[in-house]
Design a binder for these strands. Structure first.
Lengths: 203, 203
DNA sequence: ATGAATAGTGAATCATTATTCATTATAACA
DNA sequence: TGTTATAATGAATAATGATTCACTATTCAT
């Protein structure tokens, strides 16, 4: 009895990441993914039930990994909330720096599949955000973060800003070097949420 | 000699906004837009050369209007940069509050058509952003805004955060009431960019 | 070494929809 | 009021591309 080739499954996924990033989910062709993966068109369907399943697995893996990493940060007592926040930013930047195609897919396709409730995409994404939120909550409780900001709004604010900056980066990597983005993001976030004298002056 | 009916052209555009927002550009059907506009499928093509042209006009109108409004703000001397920034936020929120479908289209579709250089979408969008940037620049020059933040990055940061918050609102209008969003956005932006003592302490 | 059992194939199928076009209806003008 | 140019129509077309499936190749247990 033959068995399905795990490497081939991975090759298809990798090809999917590349093609979806280059062409966008809707215009991406299964035939192209198959070619890039070095398999026949029909073989794709041995490993994934359909086109959507491929991108869903891609997104699930992304958020699963990030959610895990952040979860490990939460309970560390050797780090301040600010440091934890910075580490999260670093981890996210690291993943996308290592795999720019993944960044493009996140920016362009993630939302629609989360919306339609495909697979565990939303659940894993929420787990990631919830963990981040918990860290912010800790900072507020300890009077390190400004309590005037609605946490639910703040978490989306950060993600949105991050997603858009990433989008700019994918469009113009020279003009928006990831490292500069990373530093600026940290700076803006901190000075937007840190407790400081002036914050009170401006209602 | 008969002439093309301007109202019909507008009805098609309005139907387009509604259908593109509900179904997304790719899955939106011309037949559905026609039905909603109260014309025959083929009639669409009397007014627009193809499907893409419809959404392009939608996006062009949006940015043209906003760019105009912001341009008028720039040179007003009776307003502080902070006030100008707040007015821009108000104007944008006003447009999207009045037309939620437009907000959804901006959030989900704008990027891809800007990317492919469709029509004047990118030019008008850039004009809008450039005007915003000019106001920020004024604030920095007058030492009201923090100079540590890269303006190019900041402008995308704001737009991204805004876009994402809007996305949350379209998904859950109760949980993210636009007015709360508006106030929080103003607060976070100001305390992230305003010149204040604590900002220097954090590198 | 043999033969199930399943992997792998890619051409053919099938469904989907944007667009066209032959035809009819109507508004504007003489 | 008749003529005509063009608007309006919607069924037919044409293109596209995901998915299927009849067939071949390969693996592995015996």
């Amino acid at each position: 009895m033959r068995t399905l080739d795990l490497n081939k499954r991975k090759a298809i996924l990798q090809a999917g990441i590349s093609v979806f990033a280059d062409d966008g989910y809707h215009t991406a062709k299964i035939a192209k993914i198959a070619e890039l993966a070095g398999v026949a068109t029909g073989s794709i369907y041995r490993y994934y039930p359909n086109k959507e399943a491929i991108i869903v697995v891609i997104l699930e893996q992304l958020w699963e990994q990030l959610a895990d990493e952040v979860r490990q940060l939460i309970h560390r007592t050797d780090l301040q909330p600010v440091e934890k926040l910075e580490l999260i930013i670093d981890q996210v930047f690291d993943i996308f720096t290592a795999n720019p195609s993944l960044a493009i897919i996140f920016v362009n396709e993630h939302h629609q599949f989360m919306m339609k409730g495909a697979g565990r995409v939303k659940a894993l994404y929420d787990a990631f955000l919830d963990s981040c939120e918990q860290i912010v909550r800790e900072g507020v409780a300890r009077h390190i973060f400004n309590a005037n900001v609605d946490i639910k709004i703040f978490r989306h604010y950060i993600i949105g800003a991050f997603r858009h900056l990433l989008q700019q980066w994918t469009m113009d990597p020279e003009g928006f070097p990831l490292n500069k983005l990373r530093q600026n993001l940290k700076f803006i976030i901190k000075n937007g949420i840190m407790q400081h004298a002036a914050a009170h002056a401006h209602r």
